[in-house]
Design a protein around this nucleic acid. Sequence first.
DNA 1: CCACAATTTTAGAGTGACTGCAATTTGGGT
DNA 2: ACCCAAATTGCAGTCACTCTAAAATTGTGG
Lengths: 235, 235
Amino acid sequence: MEEGLRERKKRETRQRIADIAMGLFMAKGFDNVTVAEVARAADVSVNTVFNYFGTKEDLFADRQEVAVDLPARVLREREPGESVVRAFRRDFLDAIAGRDWRYGLNQGADVFAGIVAASPALVARMRELQEQRETALTRALADELDAAPEDLAPRLVAAQILAATRLLGAYAAGRMGAGEDWPGIEPDLRTQAERAFDLLESGLGDYGRRAPAEASGGDDGDGDPEGDEQQSERH
Amino acid sequence: MEEGLRERKKRETRQRIADIAMGLFMAKGFDNVTVAEVARAADVSVNTVFNYFGTKEDLFADRQEVAVDLPARVLREREPGESVVRAFRRDFLDAIAGRDWRYGLNQGADVFAGIVAASPALVARMRELQEQRETALTRALADELDAAPEDLAPRLVAAQILAATRLLGAYAAGRMGAGEDWPGIEPDLRTQAERAFDLLESGLGDYGRRAPAEASGGDDGDGDPEGDEQQSERH
DNA sequence: CCACAATTTTAGAGTGACTGCAATTTGGGT
DNA sequence: ACCCAAATTGCAGTCACTCTAAAATTGTGG
C-alpha cells in the first residue's frame, strides 16, 4: 500500500488545480484571472488552492520549479575531457535539434513567453527562478572543482553561462513570437549560439576597444564590432 | 519664476514622504511598515503617497533609480585605447578606493543590503533594477559599436560585466555584514576584482575541464581550478 | 480683494492576494 | 461503529492598490 486513497486524491486535486489554472491563464492572461476564479473552476475553496500553492505565481510555475537543477546536471554529466563551456555548448546545440523545452525552444513556447511578459509578477518570478538556477549551478561548480569558499569564479562562471543560455532562449522566443517558423529560425539560432559560446570561451578580450588617440590609418568609426578574430579557434 | 509655490511644495512633500518612509524602513524593516503608517507619519493621506510613488517599493528605490544609466556612462567615458572590460575594471578599482555607493561599497551599505535581503519584494525590485541596467548597457554597447540589431554580443557582454560587478558588490556587502572592517576587506576585494575581470577578459577557456578518460599521470580529482593559464595575455 | 479654473489632496468604497482560526468533513486503522 | 489525524472549508481580517467624486489649495485675471 504505497499510496492510499488519501495521497492519491491529494495528488489528483493538486494536479487538477494546476491544470485548470494554467488553462485559465492561457485563455485570459495571468493578471486577468483571480485565485477565486481558479478555485471555483476547480471546485475547491480558495483556501485549498493556497493549501497546495503558496502564491498565485506558484500556480503558474509549478512545472518550471523542476528545471532549477537541470543546468547543474548538465555540468555533472559532461564528458571526460570536456570543459564546462563546451558541455553547455553541446547541450544547447543538442537542445536546438530536439527543440528542448528546457531552453524554451519547444513549439508554443512563445505563447508561454507572451503570457509571462504580460504579467510583471510572472516576469519577476522568472527572474527569481533564474537566480535559483544560478546558485544551484554555482554550488555544483564549486563542488566539482572544490573551489575555496571565497572563490568568486564559480559564481561568475555560472552567471555567464546562464546569461548566455537565457539570451539565446529569449532570441528564439522573440523570433517565434514574431510569427517565423522553426526552419527559418533554427540555422540563425545555431549561428548565434556558436558565437555566444565562442565569446564565452575566448573572453571579452579587448572587445569594443576604443581607437587609440593617434590612430595609424583611415579606420575611423566603422570598425568590425566582433572582437574575437584573433582568438584561437578550437573546434 | 522658474518654480512657483505649487511646484516647490510638491517637491518638498515628495521628499518628506520618501525620507520618512526610509527612516521607518530602516528602523522596522520594509515588510513591517505599512503604507498607511508612512502616510500617517508624513501627515498625508495614503492616496497622496500613491500619488507620488506608484508602489511601496518605489518608496524605497527612489534614489536607486538614478543608478540605472551609470554603467552605460562608464562605457561611454572610457579612455582612448581602452577596451570595455578594462574600462569597468578601472572604474571598479577606483570605486574601491573611494568606497563608491554605486557598487554598494559605501559605509552602511550592509545595513541597506540587510533590509533588502529581509524583504522578498525588495529583492525582486533589485533584480529588476539590475535588468534595467543590463538593457541600458546593452543599448549603449550596441550603439557605440554599431552592432547589427540581431547581434547578441552586446547583450551578452553587458550581462557578463554586470554579473561581475554585482558579485563583487555582494562579496563586499557579505563581509561588511559579517562585521569586518573596511581595511580588512579592501585588499581581498581588490584581489577578487582582479581575478574576476581577468576571467572576463581571458574567457572561460577550458575552465573546469574534466580529466580525459586515459589520463597520463597521477593527476586525479585535484586539478587546478584556474583555467586561463594558456590564454594569450594582451596588455 | 474677489471670483474662476487648474491642480492637489482627500475620503470612501472596492478588489484581490494572502493569513489565521475554528468548525467540519473525510479517510484509515481498530 | 468508533476514533484520530489530515484535508477542506467558511469567515474575518490585513494590506497594497485602484477608482471616483468631493473638498482644499493655489495661480491668474479682473
